[in-house]
Design a protein around this nucleic acid. Sequence first.
DNA 1: GTCGAGATTATCT
DNA 2: GATAATCTCGACC
Length: 202
Amino acid sequence: MFDRTVLEAPSVEVAPLLLGSVLHGRGVSVRLTEVEAYLGEADPGSHAFRGPTPRNRVMYGEPGHLYTYFTYGMHVCANVVCSPAGTATAVLLRAGEVIGGLDLARERRTTSRVDADLARGPARLVVALGIVLGDNGLDLAAGEVMLELSNERPPFLQGPRTGVSGAGGTADYPWRFWIPGDPSVSPYKASAAAKRSGSATL
DNA sequence: GTCGAGATTATCT
DNA sequence: GATAATCTCGACC
């Protein structure tokens, strides 16, 4: 359960609040350590940039729901819908630390050799939680996948988004947030940042 | 440890 | 028909 009004804010404000929060999905619990904000039609990197489509209509719905989508032919990513109905902003869940249902998470992610890799990356996190494409639109307050907002405000860093192709995948939109020093984030962040712009450490 | 290239399919133009 | 909010594997240091 959570206070849905918190999620009515724009995704850039919600994103840091999700850090440290816990997502429970079908027997596995993950503490979020890295997220990314998407600002709907104002954001060239968002699926909603070119207006509503059958796929992204969930983002236009009420906050606190799950938005899932298929990408690169074989991966599913998950977002938390933010902002009031009619506004298409969302927060992409990029990485987290498995804190419950460890054995089950290991079964789902047989390619991970260390626990820190179980939910390191958007598609990996989705697999670890047992989320599938059909969960699109699920209510995170009462569904099989539940969000538990943290009362704490862990320290976080902010930087350019990664993996976004075309316009929008630049430092013009520094809407990636992560908890510094967490093992489920650091290697990913370091190599991706170095690859893009030399060094993006803040 | 870091770096580079290929895989594979739903969705949109 | 082109594109994509990625992952994995193999080569190299």
